[in-house]
Write a protein that binds this DNA or RNA. Sequence first.
DNA 1: GACTATAATTGGTAGAACCATTGAAAGCAA
DNA 2: TTGCTTTCAATGGTTCTACCAATTATAGTC
Lengths: 237, 237
Amino acid sequence: MSEFRPVATRRAFEDITAQIRDRLMRKSLQSGDRLPAERQLAEQFRVSRNTLREALRSLEIAGLVELKKGASGGAFIREGGGEAVVAGLSDLFRMGAIRPEHLTEARILVGTEVTRLACKRRNKMDLAALEANVRAAQAATGRGETARRAEINYEFHRLLARATRNPVLIVLTDALMEMTRHFVETIGYQPNRYVLPSRRRLLALLRDGDAAGAAKEMEQMLKRLQRSHLASYGKTK
Amino acid sequence: MSEFRPVATRRAFEDITAQIRDRLMRKSLQSGDRLPAERQLAEQFRVSRNTLREALRSLEIAGLVELKKGASGGAFIREGGGEAVVAGLSDLFRMGAIRPEHLTEARILVGTEVTRLACKRRNKMDLAALEANVRAAQAATGRGETARRAEINYEFHRLLARATRNPVLIVLTDALMEMTRHFVETIGYQPNRYVLPSRRRLLALLRDGDAAGAAKEMEQMLKRLQRSHLASYGKTK
DNA sequence: GACTATAATTGGTAGAACCATTGAAAGCAA
DNA sequence: TTGCTTTCAATGGTTCTACCAATTATAGTC
């Protein structure tokens, strides 16, 4: 392995974003803080406003700042929400780098572990939110609102991930659900009779704190979902 | 829940990126393709070159295109590498939204499942690469090259993830290793005596195809690593 | 005090110009 | 012909100026 590294003629906007990222890491900039106005910042960095705007655009896409118009507007530091990660994985799915079989497999592995951990950490508020979600799912099913039903189902997994208190699992689950939404839109939503009963069994296991049982229930449900999803996909292909 | 959605006064550059993303999804644009030159594209979209450049910058940060200078340069469609996802999670770690205990916990959960799946799918080339990695780790340890040793260790996990053939797990592992690198840089690399023996046991289990055993071995090693990492972190805090 | 019109601030867009890098084509020499 | 050098055109990177559009603070009015 060579001791050299590729020469990197850094572009001006990259230098700017690096400086701001550095201040973020050193807590010299925190969420909610506002950066000076574009014209002022451009002067401080000794670059044109165009170049500065490319830097801000880059930070905005990365989810680090939010740009607001008008007086008392400007670039505000966002708190880490993970939108960039979700968008990045969605792009991979759109481009075909992540295929349906990869997505469903990852959902099984991640969903099972999320369920296991959520069962150990969930509090009463988590349980209440999950129960409300299942009630909403039942109501939507009764009214035949399939699209709404799908959204409620995704939300269940997001709620469960939040109960783990681990942001890595939270943002990963958000991304998996976003990809699943894209996927299901292409193959068409298929009503089924097994998700809702599984949810009820899962709720009981979560209440009892039976982590192994809850994980098993989730795993089996996700495997069943995988089979039907991939079957639908095979037909449309 | 309301039926309305927030009004979104779309900015020009967002319209442009949406159009290009759409062509990517419909395979009308594929990796390796080259977009027209900036001046030409600006004319086609009926926007100024500034606005078009902001759109290209956005796509570049998202990892969808690569910009090259010079004659026969331009914006080239990249194949999905997941750099944006890695960068996004790294940002979350830098900003403190993901904390060391979250990182180490996620590594245990993901690493265990990656090992299990890799054990089922690995071929001879995967095994050879992993064995070469462990040999390199031993050599680096013998020469006392701690920084190089750390890099080789991260590479082991990346190689293992690639053996799963699942891009979601691959990019996730890449991101976890990148965050770990940041983390270890701040707490200082601690040489240890248990990783290398664990690697040898793991290799044997991978060769035998003992998925459960390999997963267990990885899990125990990662938990031990977690304890020492968090202990070091507690001292520096 | 509540409402309204005004003004100031700020991000969004446009257009032209120039620089720096890159690679291909033309020219030249052996 | 072959190989090297020079030239040149294409392209991204950067700057500057001007104006538009949205937003909010502020002064003014009833």
